[in-house]
C-alpha cells in the first residue's frame, strides 16, 4: 500500500488549468469546421455536399456550419477546397429560457451536483464524461460532482438520442429531481439524434422530452467542451467565443 502512496505522491499534477487558462495540449479536442468563405457560390454548394450529415449549408459566398450536426468525420477537409477547421472546444451553447438563466446563479455557482442519464449514447460520450472525474480534467476542483441519485442532483446530463425504452426512465429521473433543475444535452445524438435519426425507436432529441438548458455538441464532445457547458450553466464561462488563432490544424 505504501508503494501506491509513493506512486501517487510522486506523479506530477496532470490537471488542466482550464478555465483559468486555455488548455493548449495537443489532442484534447477534435476541433470543428467553422464558417468558411468561398470564391463562388458553386464551390460553396460543392463544399456543403461533402458533409454526410448536412452540417454544412451553403450561403452565397460562404458555408455555414451547424455544429450540432457535425460528426467530426473531416470529410470536408479532404477535397480541393476545404472548410476552415478550428481546434477550440468552447462550443457549448445556452439554449434554455431566461428563467433558468436567472435561477442558476448564486447558490449553484460554486457547486453543482450532476446526474448522468444515458439514453442510448455510444461509449465514447460516456467515456468523455468519465474523463471529467479523472486526473486530467478533475471537475471536482470546480465544485462539480456526479451524484448517484437524482434527488441530490441539480443538473441532469443526458446523452444519447432518447431511445423509446429509456424515455420513461429519463422522465422519471427528471421528475425525481428537486427544483431548480437544469438539463445539459451532451453529444450530438442528444441534441439532434445525429446519425441515429430519424428513427422508429429513438426520439432524436432530448429537448422533445424534457426542457434543455445547455447544448454541448460534438461526437463525442471532448471533456473540455463538457466542462465548458457546465461552467456556462453556472455562469462562470461565456458562450462560444470564436478564437481567431486556431490552436492547430487537422493532421
Amino acid at each position: 500500500m505504501f508503494g501506491w502512496f509513493v506512486k501517487g505522491a510522486t506523479s506530477r499534477v496532470k490537471t488542466t488549468r482550464y478555465p483559468a487558462r486555455d488548455e493548449t495540449a495537443l489532442g484534447v479536442t477534435p476541433g470543428r469546421p467553422v464558417e468558411t468563405t468561398c470564391d463562388n457560390e458553386l464551390l460553396a454548394v460543392d463544399l456543403a455536399a461533402t458533409c454526410p450529415t448536412d452540417a454544412i449549408k451553403p450561403a452565397s459566398f460562404k458555408t455555414t456550419v451547424d455544429i450540432s450536426r457535425c460528426v467530426h468525420c473531416m470529410a470536408c477537409t479532404r477535397g480541393e477546397n476545404t472548410m476552415r477547421w478550428q481546434m477550440d472546444y468552447r462550443w457549448a451553447r445556452w439554449v434554455g429560457n431566461d428563467a433558468g438563466r436567472a435561477a442558476r446563479h448564486r447558490p449553484f455557482q460554486k457547486s453543482l451536483h450532476i446526474r448522468v442519464v444515458d439514453t442510448g449514447s455510444c461509449d465514447a460520450v460516456i467515456s468523455e464524461i468519465k474523463q471529467l472525474a479523472k486526473p486530467y480534467y478533475n471537475m471536482h476542483r470546480l465544485g462539480f460532482f456526479i451524484t448517484p441519485t437524482p434527488r441530490h442532483a441539480d443538473v441532469l446530463m443526458v446523452t444519447g438520442p432518447v431511445t423509446s425504452p429509456m424515455r420513461l426512465a429519463l422522465l422519471k429521473t427528471y421528475a425525481a429531481m428537486p427544483e431548480p433543475k437544469w438539463v445539459i444535452a451532451v453529444g450530438n445524438c442528444a441534441i439532434s439524434g445525429c446519425v441515429f435519426a430519424p428513427s422508429f425507436i429513438a426520439n432524436g432529441s432530448v429537448a422533445d422530452v424534457i426542457p434543455v438548458d445547455v447544448h454541448v455538441p460534438g461526437c463525442p464532445p471532448p471533456p473540455l467542451a463538457i466542462l465548458h457547458g457546465l461552467l456556462l450553466l453556472t455562469g462562470r464561462e461565456t458562450e462560444m467565443q470564436p478564437i481567431d488563432q486556431p490552436l492547430g490544424g487537422p493532421p
Binding site: S11, K14, A25, G27, T29, P30, C73, P135, P220, P251
Partner: peptide, 23 residues
Amino acid sequence: MDILEEQALRLSGQCAGHRYLYG
C-alpha cells in the same frame, strides 16, 4: 490507469485528429 487512458486519447487526437479515431 486514467492518466494512461487520457494520454492514449490525446495521442489519438494529436496523431489522428480524433480522440476515438473516427473518420
